[in-house]
Design a protein around this nucleic acid. Structure first.
Lengths: 112, 112
DNA sequence: CAGATACATCGACCGGTGTCAATATCTTGA
DNA sequence: TCAAGATATTGACACCGGTCGATGTATCTG
């Protein structure tokens, strides 16, 4: 069993913002999580998948105007971060939005 | 009169996420806004200012362990983005959180 | 098995940015 | 007006990551 250590958005990623000053480690974790979505290509991928409900790589390459390896790279980052799920069906890999990931990120940016 | 074009978090920065696919331009704007907070030093600055209510540069250099020019640079980025306000009083520059900035970013990450 | 299709991985390039030292600018007090 | 303190700006450097072409791997079809 493998536990992802880098770039994962889970319950540890997003400590409360204005209760106490963020430690260096917490800030690094949260910044890593935010860096995942701070990219125009990844935002468009999230949006395309979210609108369609489900998309394979072949559907995503052309609207983004990026090469297939680049799109695969971004999808991997988003999936490892917990923002997308991946399901292999035949030759195709289908991706869906995992809304909890975005919810965790949103909550991390809430001043309380 | 100068209108900032890059990295500003305002009402145009954060179009709805899953109603329609993000355009390239919208994705670029939103990514620019998110890049502002996708940095550990800037997150810690936001947190320190948020907790204290108000801080000057001199209060922020030491807890971050960064040089004064670097801290000033990050504070400028955060201020131009609309996440902090800056008020000069005597020799000191005091910074406060502008909660609307974070609210706009949060809303942009909401799947609807 | 051979070819085709869909996707992933690798290696390399390059532009962007976080960082610092040095220096400039601004503000106050004597 | 001069000196000192607080902050901003400049210039340079190093590192990270987005991108692509080439190639590898898996899956289906004939």
């Amino acid at each position: 069993m493998v536990i992802k250590e880098i770039g994962v958005i889970d319950e540890r990623c997003c400590p409360p913002f204005s209760e106490a000053p963020l430690s260096a480690a917490d800030a690094e974790r949260l910044a890593s999580a935010l860096r995942v979505v701070a990219d125009p290509a990844r935002l468009r991928l999230l949006s395309l998948v979210s609108v369609a409900g489900e998309r394979c790589v072949c559907d995503l390459t052309e609207p983004l105007g990026l090469s297939q390896p680049t799109v695969s790279h971004h999808l991997k980052v988003l999936t490892e971060a917990g923002l997308l799920s991946r399901e292999q069906r035949g030759r195709w890999a289908f991706f869906r939005l995992q809304p909890e990931g975005l919810n965790l990120l949103r909550d991390a940016l809430a001043p309380r």
